[in-house]
Design a protein around this nucleic acid. Structure first.
Length: 372
DNA sequence: ATAGGGTTAG
């Protein structure tokens, strides 16, 4: 029984004993439904709360708005916030930051700005979370100078930026390949009283590896050790995949060894990246053995990522016939191949046949409207 | 009882 089911059972017992849940109970339960991916149940619960005569307060509304935003339902979220005001329940900083974050995740600067303006009109002062969400949406729209100005305004005003504000800015810069600027921010954030933490370094590392700046990435790896910043699983996974991205598969496997020695518990991303590294350097048998060993332990593994690497490896180093066996195995286990899986197979197939002109990957076929 | 930051195939 999952947590949500357990909570529901408790709720049912409450009703049976004639106890009516209060707004707090409904709000927590609704949050649970939203987090469990059960939008309909969450909304049903909201309606039931109204029927029970519980008056939703600001926190209850914020929870509903956050749930709607997390499903990308921005029109509905805004409409709830308007209804909230009409019902005389005052929106607070959390209401506005939730809505601005929702628009930011959708890349909608106009939507986010409208909420900002509304907030100012209503006499609500932005806090550090609201500002940080605005930095996020500005970055997603490549308005890095605006984002920087906003951070400077914060520092000059009475709402100083914190480490998360800078991490958001650095992430935005890295996502646009502006790694030099990101490095500059990394070095300057201390002047604002914000110490970089492990997330800051993880973001910079990812940015550098993606930009093929392997040398600088390695410098950062050294800096993390010097600074006595404790690497976490994400750090290791980022370095691991970064090494693979740079074609340094041996180095990647060494990092994996270091992770295990350090006592960090690997996750499916770690395993998939290691399997990818093995397959890329032709140690497909080792990769298969590792997958077999991991399969016994938990559920949900291997997954589509594992099989895509494995199929690529078998196709390129063993043979297409064997790859088809693994494709069957995958489908029998109920794992659905995706576009990348088919691409790995099609690429492998054509590289074996050779000199047949351009490679017809699934992407090419879809782009050109060709039919096989 | 509510809000902002991190990693994997192509």
């Amino acid at each position: 029984m999952g947590n949500v089911e357990m909570a529901l059972a408790v709720l049912a017992k409450m009703f049976l004993r004639g106890c009516s849940p209060n707004v707090h109970t409904f709000t927590s339960l609704m949050k649970g439904y939203f987090m469990g991916g059960r939008l309909c149940e969450a909304l049903d619960l909201w309606n039931r709360m109204i029927q029970e005569g519980s008056e939703p307060n600001t926190v209850a509304y914020n929870t509903l708005i956050h749930g709607l935003c997390s499903y990308g339902k921005m029109v509905e979220a805004v409409s709830v916030s308007q209804k909230m005001e009409r019902n005389g329940v005052f929106p607070n900083e959390t209401t506005y930051s939730t809505l601005i974050d929702g628009f930011a995740k959708a890349g909608d600067l106009v939507g986010a700005s409208e909420i900002w303006n509304k907030m100012i009109t209503n006499g609500c002062l932005p806090n550090v979370v609201v500002y940080t969400c605005m930095v996020d949406v500005l970055c997603r729209n490549s308005m890095f100078n605006h984002a920087l100005h906003l951070i400077e305004n914060m520092a000059n005003g009475n709402c100083p930026p914190n480490t998360i504000t800078f991490n958001t800015f650095i992430k935005g810069l890295c996502c646009s390949g502006k790694t030099e600027w990101a490095m500059k921010v990394l070095n300057q954030m201390r002047q604002y009283g914000c110490a970089p933490n492990v997330t800051t370094y993880n973001e910079v590392l990812d940015g550098l590896f993606n930009a093929k700046r392997t040398r600088e990435a390695l410098q950062i790896v050294g800096e993390i050790e010097e600074m006595e910043i404790k690497s976490n699983l994400v750090t290791y996974n980022t370095i691991l995949s970064g090494f693979c991205h740079a074609g340094m598969f041996k180095g990647a496997l060494q990092i994996a060894g270091k992770l295990l020695v350090g006592g960090t518990k690997p996750d499916s991303i770690t395993y998939n990246t290691v399997i990818y590294a093995y397959c890329k350097q032709g140690e497909v048998k080792t990769a298969i053995q590792l997958v077999d060993r991991l399969t016994k332990k938990g559920e949900g593994y291997p997954d589509v990522f594992t099989y895509t690497s494995l199929l690529w490896g078998v196709c390129n180093w063993i043979g297409v016939d064997d790859a088809v066996v693994y494709l069957d195995k995958m489908i029998n286990e109920g794992i659905c191949p995706n576009r990348a899986t088919w691409n790995a197979l099609v690429r492998g197939l054509f590289s074996k046949l050779g000199h047949l002109g351009p490679i017809h990957t699934v992407d090419n076929i879809l782009a050109n409207g060709e039919v096989t």
